[in-house]
């Protein structure tokens, strides 16, 4: 099913009775996924990566995103898809993943639990090549005001902002949400259209968190080993258009990144270790 249609289905499902109370069991699996060079090139251009043989660390996330959505749009999924907020994301690259490798994708949901502000759930994706784990991703979503069993919610990474001068200034154009939606399949209307964003309480359309994260990691091209862990905490939505600053620090072998709008407004904090 096209991702747009999944969104529509989820939107209708959100107002219908019969939603599950617990996470559906099992996982969604896609085997032998081949990277489409044209798609990779589009993704790389939108996010600021070069086009090379090694996939950007955030790219498998978009390969798995459709499966995540399929899981979340299902009637049995306990949280309504519209209104889910991506609050944190962690990616581990176990080794360089190359163009031309046949990727096996597995996606499941876990850690569905109560949160002071609602309910939180993790969507977990794993990529392997011929049985060898090469990439893991964990996306943490929050449903404000929703309820959940009182189990243990996943803890968010404890990341602190980097202060100091900007390493780069980004002028983020108005159509960034539409461009990233086209390459990621994440066609959540809050990224596409100011009116839709207003309906969810944002003054303007907002950038995808994973776009901001990808753009920040792209700034480290050539500086990070093939095997690394990327953790992101999404703080405040990045309204479109915006001019924001990337601040980087490189203590020891690790990197700390902050995307800020100047005076104290942090959009994203990330580490690479």
């Amino acid at each position: 099913m096209a991702l747009g249609a999944l969104y529509a289905k989820a939107a209708v499902g959100a107002v219908l009775p019969g939603r599950g109370k617990t996470l559906p069991d099992g996982e969604i699996v896609r085997e032998g996924v081949a990277v489409d060079l044209g798609h990779l090139a589009d993704y790389a251009r939108v996010c600021g990566f070069g086009l090379g043989d090694i996939l950007p660390p955030t790219y498998p996330h978009v390969l798995a995103f459709g499966l995540q959505l399929e899981l979340m749009a299902a009637r049995a999924f306990p949280l309504p898809l519209p209104g889910l907020v991506h609050v944190a994301n962690a990616i581990t690259t176990h080794r360089a993943v190359r163009v031309g490798e046949a990727l096996d994708l597995r996606v499941r949901a876990e850690r569905f639990a109560a949160h002071p502000k609602g309910a939180q759930v993790d969507l977990v994706a794993a990529v392997s090549v011929a049985g060898e784990p090469v990439w893991d991703g964990r996306s943490t979503y929050l449903a404000r005001g929703a309820s959940a069993p009182t189990g243990l919610a996943g803890t968010l990474p404890d990341l602190s902002d980097v202060d100091g001068p900007a390493a780069a200034v980004w002028r983020v154009p108005k159509d960034t949400g539409r461009r990233y939606a086209a390459v990621s399949g994440d066609v959540n209307p809050i990224h596409l259209n100011p009116l839709a964003a207003k309906a969810f309480g944002f003054p303007r359309a907002i950038a995808h968190g994973m776009w901001t994260a990808a753009r920040a990691f792209a700034a480290l091209q050539g500086r990070v080993p093939d095997a690394a862990r990327y953790e992101v905490l999404f703080r405040r939505p990045l309204l479109l258009p915006s001019t924001v600053e990337l601040v980087t620090a490189h203590p020891g072998a690790s990197w700390t990144l902050t995307v800020r709008a100047g005076a104290g407004t942090t959009h994203l904090t990330a580490t690479v270790t």
Binding site: L37, G38, A41, G50, L51, G52, D53, Q221, G222
Partner: peptide
């Protein structure tokens, strides 16, 4: 076709 000079030179 989709690779730029910069992409190829960097690779």
């Amino acid at each position: 076709a989709r690779a730029s000079n910069l992409d190829m030179l960097t690779a």
